[in-house]
């Protein structure tokens, strides 16, 4: 079953800007799905339309088979949204924020109380339940928005850059929580600028750019398209110039550091063997960017090039 089905979705804002140019997108139930794209690509507009915050210009959206135009309430019941910006009442207590949200979904106070406690405990916020929300730290506010989105037990959770601005420890604990949630059956759609996050968490991916879907596939098949991986090599002894190894582009960054572009067909083992034959000893290596980041940049850059060519 499809958790989300989008067909020919268009959005033209009042100033004439076409944010979405007829996108098609399917997300299967149970998936952990990444929706990526540069700033202004149309990610937040798409999420806004799915969550009824933005009015679409054309097209169809269905959530677990419920069409947003014809069965809006049934569709809304299935969705939980964690927006990019803080959007809860900053003067309200943490517990009341969750109880009110449950009330909007028709959950009576008695049941809302234990649901709120359950969600807050899961996100390690129960000890702050009586705190006025503006007194929470940035990471706690993000977790509160996740707890609020889960209080009515949605089947589809949409997270719009949920870990923006949070420290590494909080981010890692949120990843663990989201993995567990997905494992228990909740479909998750994630937008993020941390591509490492998407690569770690998501099974399927769509990349949106200039209001169009430019890539829609599984994470594994997308990553397999990567032709070259860039590495930084730290050397044991200094070098005065970059070594020449056939098939590899090697650049000398300083006396002890080389940058190497390694084609997948040759692999890194052959590079090590060749360097060793030249009496160059490598003490450590690291990626310059993660794999998805490299693909993402390639895709966005190639789109930009195509647009520039068309304009010319």
């Amino acid at each position: 079953m499809k958790a989300l089905s989008i067909y020919q979705l268009r959005k033209v804002y009042g100033n004439g800007f076409e944010a979405l140019k007829g996108i098609d997108l399917d997300v299967e139930a149970g998936d952990f799905f990444a929706l990526l794209g540069p700033n202004g690509a149309g990610k937040s507009t798409t999420i806004g339309i799915i969550s009824s915050l933005v009015t679409k210009t054309g097209g169809r959206v269905a959530v677990f088979g419920h069409d947003l135009d014809h069965a809006k309430e049934a569709a809304q019941r299935c969705i939980g949204v964690v927006p990019q910006e803080i959007n809860f009442n900053q003067f309200e207590k943490v517990l009341n924020i969750l109880i009110n949200q449950a009330g909007y979904y028709g959950i009576r106070r008695k049941e809302a109380l234990w649901r709120a406690e359950f969600c807050l405990r899961q996100l390690n916020l129960w000890d702050r339940h009586a705190t006025v929300s503006r007194q929470l730290s940035g990471g706690m506010k993000r977790r509160l928005m996740i707890a609020r989105a889960l209080v009515h037990s949605p089947r589809l959770l949409i997270l719009d850059e949920p870990t923006a601005g949070v420290d590494i420890e909080t981010r890692r604990s949120m990843w663990r929580f989201l993995r567990q949630l997905n494992h228990e059956g909740t479909t998750i759609i994630l937008t993020t600028h941390y591509l490492e996050e998407a690569e770690n968490l998501c099974r399927n991916i769509a990349i949106i750019n200039h209001g169009q879907i430019v890539e829609h596939s599984s994470m594994a098949s997308l990553l397999s398209k990567l032709q070259t991986i860039s590495y930084i090599l730290e050397l044991k002894r200094p070098l005065s110039r970059a070594p020449q190894v056939e098939g590899y582009a090697i650049e000398r960054l300083d006396d002890f550091t080389l940058a190497a572009k390694v084609p997948n067909r040759l692999g890194i083992h052959h590079l090590f063997t060749s360097l060793s034959a030249l009496d160059i000893e490598v003490v450590s290596l690291r990626n310059t960017a993660n794999r998805l980041e490299q693909l993402f940049i390639d895709l966005v850059e190639s789109q930009r090039g195509e647009r520039l060519r068309k304009t010319a």
């Binding site: 959007n87 009442n89 909007y104 979904y105």
Partner: peptide, 17 residues
């Protein structure tokens, strides 16, 4: 204030007519 602080969104995403 609900609009200004954007927590009107809590209502708009929920199935509240």
């Amino acid at each position: 204030s609900t609009k200004f602080q954007r927590h009107i969104e809590e209502l708009l995403i929920a199935p509240v007519p």
